[in-house]
């Protein structure tokens, strides 16, 4: 993917977020809908293939939160993609706990708080930007097998153990693939 182009289009969307929070601009919401809804649906369908109704429900739920919570989004602390990913992830967890065989009374709202820190810290923000760029560039360069495992965990919502079962590989292999990938993306530094 062309990194420069992506950053440029991200800027437009951050402008749209601003237009929503300040002017309640429905046109801006319309543009974000076009961009993000196919991604949110794909994210849901990766975990539950064929569950189109669920995908539609979650996509709508996420976009309603975008509309209502736009003012809480701070571009300097997280990219818009990351922010919307957390909304989609949390909505998917909530949907699954209410509709699955194993219903849970644990409310995910208590467990995944906003990525956005309460205290502004310019040093941390700069660090965050660098991490963001490193991850974006590094991800494209990862070998196929490492990308595949990351996709299983993040998009299909599988644990390491479930990914191992599905790919018929030993758990150790999955663990080392993820660790290698995280190491290359400088997310994981051995303690």
């Amino acid at each position: 993917m062309d990194t420069v182009k992506q950053i440029d289009s991200d800027d437009h969307m951050v402008q749209d977020m601003l237009a929503i929070s300040q002017n309640r601009d429905q046109e801006a919401l319309n543009r974000l809908f076009d961009h993000y809804v196919p991604k949110i649906r794909a994210f849901c369908l990766a975990a539950q293939p064929g569950a189109n109704l669920m995908a539609d429900d979650i996509a709508q739920e996420v976009m309603i939160r975008v509309w209502r919570k736009a003012h809480t989004y701070k571009p300097e602390t997280a990219s818009l993609n990351t922010w919307i990913f957390t909304l989609a992830r949390n909505a998917r967890i909530d949907y699954l706990r209410k509709n699955s065989r194993h219903q849970s009374n644990i409310d995910p709202e208590y467990l995944w708080r906003d990525v956005i820190d309460e205290n502004a810290d310019p040093f941390k923000d700069a660090q965050q930007k660098r991490d963001q760029e490193r991850i974006q560039i590094g991800l494209a360069k990862l070998p196929q097998d490492q990308q595949q495992v990351l996709a299983k965990v993040y998009l299909e919502g599988k644990t390491h153990k479930e990914a191992a079962e599905e790919l018929s590989l030993p758990l150790g292999t999955i663990k080392s693939r993820v660790r290698l990938a995280l190491h290359k993306l400088t997310i994981y530094i051995k303690r």
Partner: peptide
């Protein structure tokens, strides 16, 4: 989580 956001943007239907 940043990595999650990045993987998320690469998906689409």
């Amino acid at each position: 989580t940043t990595l999650g956001g990045q993987l998320f943007t690469q998906t689409t239907t």
